[in-house]
């Protein structure tokens, strides 16, 4: 097993764990945690491909990962703000009880 294969397998496992969490948990915050895990797994892939690429000094994968971290931070801030706002209206973070479009 090459090192790249090992890192890609770990990233795939983390992605699957995050996806399982996002699909099965009821709490909206834990769904966001699952999404963060999936984004991190993608970042690990980008960094691993950058490290074992023929031209790491071109910095392409590294830049992609850095911008991905910034976008994920923005996503987390807006997502958690939305959860807090929804909790103020409905007094719940249970996704099964959020079944109305009207606030």
């Amino acid at each position: 097993m090459t090192p790249l294969t090992g890192y890609l397998l770990v990233a795939a496992l983390l992605f699957a764990i995050g996806l399982a969490g996002a699909l099965t948990r009821r709490n909206a915050i834990l769904v966001l945690i699952g999404i963060e895990l999936m984004l991190n797994a993608a970042n690990l892939n980008l960094i691993a491909f950058w490290r074992y690429s023929p031209h790491p000094e071109a910095l392409t994968g590294m830049m992609f990962a850095i911008f991905s971290i910034a976008v994920a931070a923005a996503e987390a801030a807006v997502g958690l703000g939305l959860v807090i706002s929804i909790h103020r209206h409905t007094h719940t973070t249970d996704l099964d009880q959020m079944n109305r479009m009207k606030g």
Binding site: A16, I17, L19, A20, A22, L23, T24, R25, R26, L95, D96
Partner: peptide, 11 residues
């Protein structure tokens, strides 16, 4: 959720 098995199978 009500059917966690579906999510687990997909993952």
């Amino acid at each position: 959720s009500r059917n966690p098995l579906i999510g687990l199978v997909i993952a």
